[in-house]
């Protein structure tokens, strides 16, 4: 049951990301200038007098522009329309009462739509980067642990070097030598590469320790004595022992990379506004009023939590990783903490 719940969460994330153009009521950069930071417009079926209707919403009326206070106009109902303009659902009158299931951000953009479109970038980026970290980390850690000696020293010192690099300053230096304007595809590739490099040492160190320890065990000695080659011994027998560790690291790196993307966006290395990603959305919400008055701006954090929860539940029930108490990838917070 728990595993099913985990799969459901992950499936929902994938459906949301892939189906964003249909599911989102608005484009990610559509702006409703009169509704800056407006609260969510929840669909209703029953009006104040107790009468049932087809799904509808109440429009917001601006009370104080400077304080960004709105009141619902309960005297007016605006119906929802289905499968129009290429969208699953939307308001019958966007100019008067746009459907904003998770409210609006500080530019008057629909947070729900941006959350869906942002999922595409954030999930893809973090997954690609985490896989890149895994490949590099497994390769480096496996070779270091298996060969040992000078190769071990060289690879681990290289990993240590990456670990001690002040990632933010390196990113800033890198940014300064790049063109001012970068295409989104370039930004994606650049971020994925940076995250893979930064994340790889955390996996390689653990993999190296596990391979080194496993190599001494009887089963490994037996496999070797039976004539298995180095590559087979490493790939088929030793590295699988690190599977649990790798999965735990990946579940930690994925959300860390999502947030790190926001940090790099701040220094000009991430996706530029108005491109929606969970990281840039969270960056927009990084002020005290978001917590106090506009909590819907934090919905990307909730989405990240659900994705990570789904990953953990699936992995736990697969018997490869504990839900809690897993070793935390120290790299998870490096970019955003510096």
């Amino acid at each position: 049951m728990t595993r099913l719940f985990g799969w459901t969460l992950l499936a929902a994330a994938v459906v949301a990301a892939s189906g964003a153009p249909l599911l989102a009521p608005h484009a990610s950069d559509d702006q409703f200038r009169g509704l800056l930071n407006a609260a969510p417009t929840f669909p209703h079926l029953v009006d104040d007098s107790g009468h049932w209707h087809r799904p509808f919403i109440y429009p917001w009326t601006l009370v104080s522009q400077l304080e960004q206070r709105y009141e619902q106009d309960r005297s007016t109902r605006v119906g929802l329309v289905w499968f129009t303009r290429g969208r699953l659902v939307g308001s019958a009158d966007d100019s008067r009462a746009p459907l904003m299931l998770l409210g609006a951000d500080s530019y008057g953009r629909d947070v729900f739509s941006r959350l869906l479109f942002g999922a595409r970038i954030s999930l893809a980026l973090s997954i690609v980067a985490a896989l890149g970290s895994m490949l590099a980390g497994v390769l480096i850690g496996g070779l270091a642990g298996y060969i040992g000696g000078g190769v071990d020293d060289l690879l681990m010192r290289a990993s240590d070097f990456v670990l001690v690099l002040p990632a933010m300053y390196v990113a800033l230096a890198l940014r300064s030598v790049l063109p001012l304007v970068l295409a989104s595809g370039t930004v994606f590739g650049l971020l994925a590469a940076i995250f893979a490099v930064v994340g790889a040492p955390f996996i390689s160190r653990g993999v190296r320790a596990i391979v080194r320890a496993e190599k001494q065990l009887d089963y490994a000695v037996a496999v070797a004595s039976l004539g298995a080659g180095h590559a087979r011994l490493l790939a088929r027998h030793l590295l699988p022992a690190a599977r649990g560790f790798i999965v735990v690291e990946i579940t930690m790196l994925v959300p860390a990379f999502i947030v790190a993307e926001a940090t790099l966006s701040y220094v000009g290395l991430g996706f530029p506004d108005p491109v929606a990603s969970w990281g840039t959305m969270l960056h927009d919400a990084s002020n005290v009023r978001a917590f106090a008055d506009f909590p819907w701006l934090l919905s990307p954090a909730a989405a990240m939590f659900l994705v990570v929860l789904g990953l953990n539940l699936v992995m736990e029930q697969s018997g490869v990783a504990p839900v809690m108490g897993a070793p935390v990838a120290e790299g998870a917070g490096r970019l955003q903490s510096e």
Binding site: S64, L66, E67, Q68, R69, S106, N287, V288, R289, A292
Partner: peptide, 9 residues
């Protein structure tokens, strides 16, 4: 700043 006005108000 305008975005802080409400809190101060």
């Amino acid at each position: 700043a305008p975005e802080s006005y409400a809190l101060v108000k």
